[in-house]
C-alpha cells in the first residue's frame, strides 16, 4: 500500500493549492493514515491563535524534501515549532543548508534527526560556519561533515564551542581531522573533559609537547568518545564505574569553583 500512496500524495500536493486551512481530509489526501491525520490535526489545533497558519507550507516543504508521512509526523512531534515558520524562511534555510554541501540523502537525514535546524535563521548558521572555518580552521569539507554528523552545533553557544575546540586542540593536542572523525561536537565540553581528565590522572593520556610527541601512546579521540560510559570504562579507562562517578562529581565542583574564582577576579 505504500507504493500506491506515493503518487497519490504528489497528486494531492498539486491539487491542494487553494486549501489554506488544515482539515482531516486534506491531511489524509497528503498521504497520512487516518490516525496520523488525527494526531497531526490535534497537534495543530492545540497551537494557539494563528500559530499554525504556516503548517501547510511546512508540510509541503518537508514532503518536497522527500520525507514520507510517518517521518514528517515524527519530526513534527519532536519539533512542533516548525508549524509556525514562514514558507519563505523555511525555503531559504533549506537552500542554505544545501549550499553548505548537505545534498540529498544527508539533507533528509539531518532534517529528520535534527528538525530544529530549520528553526535556526540563515544568519546564525552562517555565523557558525564562519566561526568553524576561521576560528577553528576547519576546511569546507570538514564543516559539511560537522553539520551532517553534529547539526546541533548550529544552536550551541559560541563561547562554549570555542572553549571546547581550544580544550581539545591545545590541552589534548588533537587536530581538526581527528575532531571531525570522532564527532567531537556531539559531546558536551563536560563529557569530553571528564573522560580526558580521568584518563590523564590515571596516566593514560598526555598532552603532546611542541613537537607533538608524548611518552605514552594516547588513545584516539574517537575511541575515547565513542560508546557509552561502560564501554569507555572497560575499553579505554580500565576503571570502575564507582571511581569515575566520584571523579565526575569532583571535577564538576572543581570547575565550578574555578569559574567562581574567575568571576571574582574579573569583578575586581
Amino acid at each position: 500500500t505504500l507504493k500506491s500512496t506515493q503518487p497519490n500524495h504528489e497528486l494531492n500536493l498539486l491539487s491542494m493549492q487553494p486549501v489554506t486551512e488544515l482539515s482531516l481530509p486534506s491531511l489524509v489526501d497528503m498521504g497520512f493514515t487516518d490516525s496520523q491525520a488525527e494526531q497531526l490535526y490535534d497537534a495543530t489545533s492545540k497551537l494557539k491563535g494563528g500559530a499554525a497558519k504556516h503548517a501547510l507550507s511546512t508540510l509541503t516543504a518537508l514532503f518536497v524534501l522527500g520525507l514520507n508521512p510517518s517521518n514528517v509526523l515524527k519530526l513534527l512531534e519532536k519539533c512542533p515549532e516548525l508549524y509556525t515558520i514562514k514558507e519563505s524562511q523555511i525555503q531559504q534555510r533549506i537552500a542554505n543548508i544545501r549550499k553548505l554541501g548537505l545534498v540529498e540523502g544527508s539533507l533528509q537525514r539531518v532534517v529528520s534527526h535534527y528538525p530544529q535546524i530549520l528553526t535556526v535563521p540563515v544568519k546564525t548558521v552562517k555565523n557558525v560556519v564562519v566561526f568553524l572555518r576561521e576560528k577553528c580552521l576547519f576546511t569546507a569539507q570538514q564543516v559539511t561533515e560537522i553539520l551532517r554528523d553534529s547539526p546541533a552545533v548550529v544552536l550551541e553557544n559560541m563561547g562554549q564551542l570555542e572553549y571546547k575546540f581550544q580544550y581539545v586542540y591545545f590541552r589534548m593536542g588533537v587536530k581538526q581531522a581527528e575532531m571531525v572523525k570522532s564527532r567531537l561536537l556531539r559531546f558536551t565540553l563536560e563529557e569530553v573533559r571528564c573522560r580526558h581528565c580521568f584518563l590523564e590522572r590515571r596516566g593514560l593520556y598526555q598532552t603532546p609537547d611542541k613537537k607533538g610527541q608524548t611518552v605514552i601512546l594516547n588513545p584516539k579521540l574517537a575511541s575515547i568518545l565513542k560508546g557509552d560510559e561502560d564501554t569507555f570504562l572497560t575499553d579505554v579507562a580500565n576503571a570502575s564505574a564507582e571511581e569515575y562517578d566520584v571523579l565526575k562529581r569532583m571535577m564538576k565542583r572543581e570547575w565550578w569553583e574555578e569559574e567562581q574564582l574567575q568571576g571574582t577576579i574579573e569583578a575586581n
Binding site: F198, R201, R202, G203, L204, N238, A239, E243, L247, M250, E254
Partner: peptide, 23 residues
Amino acid sequence: FDATYGVQLGQLWPSVRAALLSE
C-alpha cells in the same frame, strides 16, 4: 612516581595515581 610505583603497585597504580591527583 610513575617510574617507581608503576612497578611497585603494578595494576593498582593507575587507580592510586588518579586518587593522588584528585581532592
